[in-house]
Design a protein around this nucleic acid. Sequence first.
RNA 1: GACCCACUAGCUCAGUCGGUAGAGCACCUGACUUUUAAUCAGGGUGUCGAUGGUUCGAGUCCAUCGUGGGUCACCA
Length: 489
Amino acid sequence: MTSEELNELLRVRREKLAAIAARGIEPFGRKYNFSHHAKEIITDFDKLEGQTVRLAGRVVAVRGHGKASFAHLMDMSGRVQLYFRQDTVGDEAYENFGLLDIGDIVGVEGEVFRTQKGEISVKVTSFEILAKSLRPLPEKWHGLKDVETRYRQRYLDLIVNPEVRDTFVARSRVIRALRHYFDAQGYLEVETPMMHPIAGGAAARPFITHHNALDMRLYMRIAPELYLKRLIVGGFEKVYEINRVFRNEGISIKHNPEFTLLESYQAFADYNDIMALTEQVIAHVAREVLGTTKITYQGQEIDLTPPWPRVSMTEAIQKYAGVDFTTVKTVAEARAIADKLGVRYEAKQGIGGILNNVFEEVAEKHLIQPTFITGHPTEISPLAKRNKDNPDITDRFEAFIFAREIANGFSELNDPIDQKGRFLSQVAQRESGDDEAHMMDDDYVTALEFGMPPTGGLGIGVDRLVMFFTDNYSIRDVILFPHMRPQRD
RNA sequence: GACCCACUAGCUCAGUCGGUAGAGCACCUGACUUUUAAUCAGGGUGUCGAUGGUUCGAGUCCAUCGUGGGUCACCA
């Protein structure tokens, strides 16, 4: 909608804007010193009754009654009723009141009182227009439902749908609780590069960008992992980072191209320590944010109280498909099991890859209550330490809640020779067409050659965690501005 | 990337068999000094997502495209 094509609703507001200016009033004000928030007027009424208060916020409803009018003012805390009387504010100010629209930002001064019908209100003695609103807000009763508009114009969603504001307040509290937990455990919060010459630490396609002055290709990071472990080599014993990573993949109810990942590393620990850390930190966040470790997600009761059961990947397959994968020695045998279960696999996949496919197909959907799955194949875990008794699997776990992977951790591979070999086999996979396989990172191997203590590492998808704690079904509902295509005509 | 669904007023939604655009809220005009989804009287404000096609006639049928949602694939 261009300015040349203003419809009546927009035109009327522009006319009021001009009328306000013609009266010598700035329609876009400067500052306003407010004394209270709307919610305080309600909660502290006994103390504030008869007192003069100053509030600032958005007019969200107006009910005119001739020479007196009611309105509702909304600020960050909530809303409170305003009462405007011609004989209280004066004739001129009451005419100015007539130029207000729903959506305008105002500052008001007035006396706290209770109306005949019992609603706590502020009897306005004077007010200022702090910002004229030139566009109508969505409807007061049904709110804004159109999901496209909600995401593209999130500010409207936040103005009109209070539960959306609650979700993002809760998101902030989740992240704060995570930080508090790691800080209290003696972890150092660090920031590592967002732009990487080599995109490592996860199996994912990166976004590619370019540095002009250096004339070099850079990748937006897909994980901070390899940098955080360099810090462990450097002598930090406990580090964590909470920030964005970027993966050039499809968008879905569970995926946004940029998402928030928490990674932590603890020197001299192993994956068992990290499993304990995981269930403790998630339970801690639940208590901090919700006051309980028993949550309801999509109508399903979920008990986050530690400890969570530990089940190996092969045990889970045994349990849910009745198949013993531990005896498999050849790819042919693995394929035969997959075929029998109707699980698809690719030609390039070995025993480990097929095992993982079978697990995902037969077991994952059963993992509603928090569960640690352990013993992931070495083939799909190029950065994890091999199990002492079985080199084909790693000391790794994934935590599942509501059939969704919420955390991933392992004993970090600190043997540079093994790591080099793992990279080489990843490179071979890349060369055979797997563009999600790892790239060779010689600099990282060099770091390991200086000696990295045995280390336990953890990654938690923060957005998904927020989804659980706010009972949201789509990741878009816990990301303020989810990725969208640009609008076209 | 594939398939399915949706797109009508500022917002939320109706729209029958293809017959020329509707409601509530919002908005405009008027009345109203304790209302609260205020009320009362009057007013419809629209490129029916876009472009083609079929038809005497398309919001409606067909095709292509766009955007969004869902399922699948990939991933956390």
